[in-house]
Simulated scan of single mutants.
Amino acid sequence: MTEQQSNDLDPRRDLTRRRIVVAGGAAVAVAGLGAAVATTAAAGETSGSAASATPSASASSPSGEVCYRLTSETTEGPYYIDADKIRKDITEDREGIPMTLRLKVIDSESCKPLAKAAVDIWHCDALGLYSGYESSSSGGGTPPTGTPPTGAPPTEAPTGAPTGAPPGGGHQDPTDDKRYLRGTQLTDRHGFVEFSTVFPGWYRGRCVHIHTKVHIGGKLTDDGYEGGHTCHTGQLFFAEEAVLDSAKVAPYSTSTTERTTLDEDGIYPGNGAEGGLLHLKYRKGHIAKGVVGSLTLGVDPDATNDGTGM
């Protein structure tokens, strides 16, 4: 089955003739995926072909074009390290399901793509550990050889409120010098960036997620991206169906950590693509082969949202 790439993810589209932006980041063509699962702005919604994204417009631009609502702001979280790794592939030595993350950044008022914006992402590994904070992040870990996990892998959604430490929290200083699953890139003239990483795991009290920041007005230096200001701090979220599929694959399947669902999470705002819910595509029954996640971020380039006061 051939997947059709939507205009929202085609840099060659004619912006003067068609500038209607469709929410959720649209379907991305992936060669050889065959029958695919496509999760969209409604968590758990699937389709064997490219799913139709739902518009998320609140108002028209001065020229009458339909634009994105502002993407929801969230807390920075305790494990942020300043943008000092300018790179596309952030995997390093981490095991897990290969993931391509494609983001587009636009001005939510004018609909125009933001070029040369620095997009920063960071997330935990397949077992819940953050680089720079391995001693303080609450990863699930792998049980010793011959010792079975103390509970079944999360093949069903858990019930009840999340337990353990509350999500978010103030910034902490790094405890080690590792930097896997962290990276920054500048958007191209169409507002796009693409990262190569792994599907994140989970840890106590939080659903599966990726942190992101968008920086405007700075410049690249030998030490990374410096100057300017942070106009967006958010998190990217994953539909439950994809998380349950990932939990069947090692090393995710070895985690003994209780999992918090998307609906139970204390930070996900519950508003689909506007709140950071990724559009995910992977081959049905073969998620281990790889996942493509995409989303368009609507931001206010003049605002300052560093996520530290939330």
Rank of each mutant, 00 (worst) to 15 (best):
G64Y: 11
L103M: 12
I97W: 04
V291C: 04
H229V: 07
L280Y: 00
G285R: 00
N271W: 00
T74L: 09
E73K: 10
P144H: 03
L101V: 01
Q5R: 13
F199Q: 05
Y68V: 03
G217A: 09
V37R: 11
D223S: 12
Y252M: 04
A303G: 03
H171W: 11
V66W: 12
L114H: 04
G132N: 08
I90P: 06
R283H: 09
G224S: 07
E3R: 00
G25R: 02
S131Y: 10
R17F: 07
P167E: 14
R87T: 14
V119M: 12
D10K: 02
I81S: 04
G128H: 01
L297E: 04
T175P: 03
D177H: 10
L186Y: 01
D263T: 10
A152P: 14
E3N: 04
P153V: 09
P78W: 12
S61T: 14
A239V: 00
L297S: 03
G272M: 09
K85R: 15
V30G: 03
D222R: 10
H171L: 15
G290V: 10
T308V: 13
R102V: 13
N271H: 02
S246V: 11
K284S: 13
V299L: 04
I86W: 03
A41I: 06
G272L: 08
L277Q: 00
S52T: 12
C231R: 08
G141H: 07
D82L: 02
Y133S: 06
G293A: 15
D173A: 15
D188C: 06
E264N: 10
C67V: 13
A126D: 13
A118K: 01
C67N: 07
S136I: 15
P98V: 13
A247H: 07
V198Q: 08
V291K: 00
G64W: 11
R204S: 14
L127W: 09
C207N: 15
E241I: 12
P166H: 10
R179V: 11
S246E: 07
L129R: 11
V28Y: 09
G139S: 13
A35W: 06
L220F: 00
G48T: 14
E194F: 01
G140M: 11
M1L: 08
G25F: 01
